[in-house]
């Protein structure tokens, strides 16, 4: 702040409070709806204060779900989402680190070609090539499996670039010292590069976990067996089936549960999250 302007300060506070309230509004409404019995959500307007059924609605969704909605218990879907998110985050970090290591620390034929092949994945988002990719996965027999949910999504140009940048800033003297001490490439990778890029890995993990958890189109297409449904894709199937008797309280409870893990990650790892976000976009 450059000069003291009380009016502008009050205006700034008001703007921010308004912004925070507007951002929180849909989640508050969803939360309130999820604590009411279904009868208070059929007509009129949605209540604005929480109701009595918080524990009842959530425990019902987590443990058994609603059979008529065609989805398994939310607990199972959250477990599937967790497995998918972890597999995507860890897989992306692992294969990107080894690729970046190969590209930075070795000279070999077609090095640039390999680099461009990886780069091009950035330009082919899954939504764009969805039909042929689905066909490939179907032909490989990977429908309805955790491998099918995660492996096709773990190629990552951004993560490879990030680790390339990190490795390029690591001084050559370290490599020389390691070589003089007789360390081979893999020992150097394990004992020097891995520990030095630990914070970058953590920051990237936060971003990739959110990315993996929030996948929608891909799990929706390749899971037809309900025991592999993920929560973000499952909630859509739920909302589709509510046209008979809209059980909005249960759908909203699921929505709250679907956003809870990634939101908690952002709030409690805010510093890593900001670092990861800014770094991956460079």
């Amino acid at each position: 702040m450059i000069e003291n302007r009380p009016f502008l300060n009050i205006l700034a506070h008001l703007t921010l409070i308004l912004g925070v309230a507007a951002v929180a509004l849909p989640v508050w409404v969803a939360f309130v709806a999820s604590t009411h019995p279904v009868s208070s959500l059929i007509s009129g307007t949605v209540p604005l204060l929480p109701g009595p059924d918080l524990v009842k609605n959530y425990s019902r969704m987590l443990s058994s779900g609603v059979s008529t909605m065609g989805t398994p218990p939310v607990g199972l879907m959250m477990m599937n989402s967790l497995i998918m998110a972890l597999a995507i985050a860890i897989g992306k970090i692992a294969i990107s680190m080894t690729s970046a290591f190969a590209i930075v620390y070795f000279r070999f034929r077609f090095r640039m070609l390999a680099f461009w092949c990886i780069f091009i994945t950035m330009m082919l988002p899954v939504e764009v090539r969805i039909v042929p990719t689905f066909k490939v996965v179907a032909d490989l027999g990977m429908l309805n499996s955790y491998a099918g949910l995660s492996i096709p999504l773990i190629a990552s140009a951004t993560a490879t670039f990030l680790f390339r940048q990190v490795f390029l800033t690591i001084p050559d003297e370290l490599t020389e010292a390691a070589r003089i001490d007789g360390a081979g490439p893999m020992k150097f990778f394990r004992d020097i590069l891995l520990p030095l890029s630990r914070t970058n890995m953590a920051a990237l993990f936060v971003i990739l976990f959110i990315y993996g958890w929030n996948q929608y189109l891909w799990p929706l297409l390749i899971t037809t067996d309900s025991s592999y449904y993920t929560i973000v894709a499952g909630i859509k199937r739920m909302a589709d089936s509510v046209d008979g008797v809209p059980q909005w309280n249960l759908v909203m409870a699921t929505a709250i549960l679907a956003m809870l893990p990634p939101v908690l990650v952002v709030i409690f790892m805010q510093r890593l999250f900001v670092k990861g976000l800014v770094e991956t976009e460079k």
């Binding site: 951002v23 849909p26 989640v27 409404v29 969803a30 959110i210 958890w213 929030n214 929608y216 973000v232 894709a233 909630i235 859509k236 909302a239 759908v251 929505a255 679907a258 956003m259 990634p262 939101v263 990650v265 952002v266 709030i267 805010q270 999250f273 900001v274 976000l277």
Partner: peptide
């Protein structure tokens, strides 16, 4: 910043 973590599909439902 937390809405960053909300899936687009969930944002749509809300």
């Amino acid at each position: 910043v937390w809405p960053y973590a909300v899936a687009p599909a969930v944002a749509g439902i809300l």
